[in-house]
Design a binder for these strands. Structure first.
Lengths: 220, 220
DNA sequence: CGGGCTATTTTGATTAGTCAAAATAAAACT
DNA sequence: AGTTTTATTTTGACTAATCAAAATAGCCCG
């Protein structure tokens, strides 16, 4: 059995490598695991020996098939737990991330399958993040963000890619939950601002950095 | 924060001291924690330094108020989780104990309170074990067992005091879930047998050892 | 009372995970 | 090319939890 420390390392390697083919750097891992770089190097070398990752010294690391399987399992548990906490226990969507960090390591396959069924086999969690299937398939659809897509067209929020409670609360306050319909009114690169309009609400502005964390799709 | 190891030690001290005023021996703890006695001595000394237990060298250990609070919290989490797994996820009551062993260390107070509310503030878990209240009150009603109580009177099963999956399955097969109505037909001390009758079922027999693990109350 | 059995405690080692700080390699700039 | 900066790796040390095995203390019993 992979310890929860091992599970966490693998999960973070996967999350940090999402969207790129680049190797994940020790520094990035150290940052997201809240651990000093030396610790990461040591740990990654051990994970490489166990066949979970492929380590290129001084360059970075990537998951092996074996490591990816474990990581997807952790992420599946995490996101299903989040969904459960929001849908069944009616918890605040901004706070469920940290709860799930603990529970993702304590849930058996049996319990997980039942949760999955209870929730109706959801494909995304409350933040719009895709839930890997039991077979380890992860939908990797690429969406544009509010920072990159066309002005004027009607859009729908599909995913928020920042799990911090502060950002999620900010998104909620601005009505930017997954499913919300919005339209970009204007984007000013120089000022670093994006202006939005959603139906039945005054226009709001947010920074490009924030806009880049909100994935959307065109409706119609 | 108490580590899950610490939580486990305290939980086992409490469970082993239930019903007696005796100190809990290192050997008993070692047995129920699946650890060698030397490890227990070392750990208990550390717990004593932190004020969780009161250690009388060569005699045994008991919980302090502080340790008791922690232990009751763990047991509350354990039993509420078991109840959830059976009532909501429809899991087999014989298998939920081991699931809960993991989850009891990973659940926050917030999640626990919501679970408690969702389940309607139950006072016992599926095995009839009392659930400590959020304030740390544990009903300690003393029930007779099938091995000790009077022959002939109508009885109701209230609790099974053996968490092993085998015993629970055995109890289930014989219709001895909490709530079941039974009557003792005969008890033969020499043969070590107790004969039972429950309404609408043939009489069955079980050993005195088994009967002693089934707590009952008189109906009417 | 003294010897022996048993439970407990001590001692010395081990493993997983971590940090601080020194050493090294690679990249980036003059 | 040579020097500086930055990231990574190494080294040595620490903590929590554990075990095996030796030492010790109690207790029981003749």
């Amino acid at each position: 059995m992979a310890s929860s420390t091992v599970e966490n390392y693998l999960k973070h390697v996967l999350l940090l490598s999402e969207g790129t083919t680049e190797l994940v750097s020790m520094g990035a891992l150290a940052g997201s695991l809240n651990v000093v770089p030396g610790t990461v190097t040591t740990m990654i070398k051990a994970l490489a020996v166990d066949g979970f990752v492929d380590h290129r010294p001084r360059q970075g690391v990537r998951l092996t098939e074996k490591g990816r399987r474990v990581a997807l399992g952790v992420i599946r548990r995490h996101r299903l737990v989040e969904t459960f906490l929001v849908s069944v226990l009616k918890m605040d969507w901004a706070s469920v991330h940290s709860e799930a960090e603990q529970l993702e390591h304590a849930i058996s396959d049996d319990v997980l399958d039942r949760l999955d069924a209870l929730l109706g086999h959801p494909t995304t969690d409350p933040h719009g993040d895709p839930i890997p299937s039991a077979q380890g398939k992860l939908s990797s659809q690429v969406y544009p963000t509010l920072a990159t897509c066309i002005i004027g067209k009607p859009l729908r929020v599909v995913r928020i890619t920042d799990q911090s409670a502060e950002f999620l609360q900010f998104a909620e306050q601005n009505g930017l939950l997954p499913g919300a319909n919005v339209r970009i009114v204007d984007r000013n690169l120089t000022a670093g601002l994006v202006s939005l309009k959603r139906s039945g609400a005054p226009a709001t502005a947010l920074s490009l950095a924030a806009a880049g964390k909100i994935l959307v799709e065109q409706t119609r």
